[in-house]
Design a protein around this nucleic acid. Structure first.
Length: 494
RNA sequence: GGGCCUCUAGCUCAACUGGCAGAGCUGCGGACUUUUAAUCCGUAGGUUGCGGGUUCGAGUCCCGCGGGGCCUACCA
């Protein structure tokens, strides 16, 4: 007997013994193929209404996981479910399946087993679509008990054993499908607008495109450290320089920072760049992408969250300016030229803690987060940010000290951000040199990427750029936490 | 990083101020040819997250470690 066998719970040992016995009797617990003729969904759709107590004369073989059993003396019921969540009832009666197969069923079947059954399609006396079984076998014997179906598993178990979660909870299966539904909608929406999808490096020699702490790794062949990318921005801009004037990428970014209900160390990201467009065009496209994704996933723009609340994503969205909205909230006109002492005094009087290292613009953003964003009633674009927090964005065409950048807030978190991209290579160099000088003290600042600057020096057309968190899009569509939107989020080993 | 809470049977949860670790479902044995969380009879199942300590006695109190949650901090 193996160590594993010794450590198994009582219920696991019983299942292991059943497996041994099945194999010893020359039957198969894990056959290489199963004689399936129909999926459970096909049976359901081909026989939508069989009158109670009647049979059809048609025979099928279906396979599924046993999720409900009810045995009586000479008649056994089981609910078999397919991976799509569709179920059909199997009925094993003494007169159809015979004494031996009925006894074996009662002896060997546990909740969670995957089986195939052959028999006539009909309906039970209660009118439930059923297979009247005359032959059955295992597709795969399950060796572990499932959780009870009537109580929620705790969140940790759901995350650590997503396979069990997927078996037990329709919502978990729906999330897996919704996620890929949203991705597929984004790809098709962008493709319809003539955007080309590309793939750019995840292993990078320089961190760039955002300010965040990177994960580092080591490449043995070149004996050099590499970074997992924190953003694809600098590579996608190289694409625009090269003439891919509408380009996007959907891929994973990695940031070595805190994890909470809105942050995951690896997260899905869409970035798209559109030449001959500005940040307002990018905002409009972003709204359309999200609305089309909501329509594709939820079937409506009045999106219902898991808590039952309805969130209207339709129509135009609110659009405010950072300085305008903060000025209104504090009751005093502030601008990028407002002296720091005054900003600090405003933060102080509104209960916003100030870190002395923060730049002036950061103080205004803090005021926004604490005074303005909590009052948003729907998706809201916040326009025009201070230059000192945004080194890759073009200066505002009208107001000194601002850049053409927006953030999109949905449900209180940042869902997307967009720029009129900085394309003047000389200004970009100045900004990046300034950043690089801070890299010595700030491990999130970007080092100088000479190759990126060389690309810009070849001439990049005026462009809009947008980044949107995929996980956060799913959060906005469902109301779930980020770890529920990710099939297998990182968990610490036990 | 800081604070608070939490970890008990396969699952979901109990156990008053320290005093025999329990229930429901699941499982196992039995009855039942129309069940839907069936019903009825019987029954098994525990290193109370891990390691120390206090005590006649620890699930409960103390210390350390680990997992998880919330708040906070950090986060373009």
């Amino acid at each position: 007997m193996s160590q594993e066998h010794d450590d198994a719970s009582e219920q696991q040992k019983i299942r292991l013994e059943k497996r041994e016995r099945i194999l010893a009797e020359g039957r198969e617990a894990y056959p290489v193929t199963v004689p399936v003729t129909h999926s459970i969904d096909e049976v359901r759709s081909q026989y939508p209404e069989v009158p109670a107590g009647e049979t059809t004369g048609d025979e099928v073989t279906v396979a599924g996981r046993v999720l409900f059993v009810r045995n009586t003396g000479k008649l056994c019921f089981a609910s078999l479910r397919s991976g799509t969540g569709t179920a059909v009832q199997a009925m094993l009666s003494l007169d159809r399946v015979g004494e031996e197969a009925l006894a074996a069923w009662k002896q060997d079947i546990d909740l969670g087993d995957q089986v195939w059954v052959h028999g006539e399609v009909g309906a039970s006396r209660r009118g439930e679509l059923s297979i009247f079984v005359d032959q059955w076998g295992f597709a795969a014997k399950s060796l572990r008990p499932l959780p009870v179906a009537h109580k929620d598993m705790n969140e940790e178990t759901r995350v650590r054993q997503r396979y069990v979660d997927l078996i037990m909870r329709p919502e978990a299966r729906k999330m897996a499908r919704d996620r890929i539904g949203a991705l597929s909608s984004l790809r098709s929406s962008l493709s319809q607008r003539d955007f080309l999808e590309v793939e750019t490096p995840i292993l990078q020699t320089l961190q760039g495109g955002a300010s965040a702490k990177p994960f580092t790794t080591h490449m043995n062949a070149y004996n050099m450290d590499l970074f997992l990318r924190i953003a694809p921005e600098l590579f996608l801009k190289r694409c625009v320089v090269g003439g891919i004037e509408r380009v996007f990428e959907i891929n994973r970014n990695f940031r070595n920072e805190g994890a909470d209900s809105t942050h995951s160390p690896e997260f899905g990201m869409l970035e798209f760049y559109q030449a001959y467009a500005d940040y307002r065009d990018g905002a409009a496209t972003t709204r359309e992408l999200i609305q089309e994704a909501a329509q594709a996933v939820c079937g409506t723009l009045q999106v219902e969250h898991v808590d039952g609340s309805i969130h209207d994503l339709s129509g135009e969205w609110d659009s405010i300016s950072l300085y305008g909205s903060v000025s209104a909230a504090v009751g005093r006109e502030i601008s990028p030229q407002t002296p720091r002492a005054e900003l600090e005094q405003l933060c102080d009087s509104h209960g916003v803690d100030v870190n002395p290292d923060w730049l002036d613009g950061r103080l205004v953003e803090e005021l926004l987060e604490s005074l303005v964003t909590p009052n948003f009633t729907g998706p809201t674009f916040v326009f025009d940010y201070p230059v000192d927090t945004s080194p890759l964005v073009r200066d505002h065409r009208e107001t000194d000290g601002l850049v053409e950048k927006w953030d999109l807030y949905v449900d209180g978190f940042e869902l997307a951000t967009g720029y009129s991209e900085l394309v003047d290579p000389v200004v970009q160099r100045e900004r990046l040199v300034e950043q690089a000088s801070r890299a010595a003290v700030d491990d999130e600042a970007m080092p100088l990427d000479e190759d990126f600057l060389a690309a810009l020096e070849h001439g990049m057309p005026p462009s809009a750029g947008v980044g949107m968190g995929i996980d956060r899009l799913l959060m906005a569509l469902t109301g779930l936490g980020i770890r529920e939107t990710i099939l297998f989020p990182l968990v610490k080993p036990l």
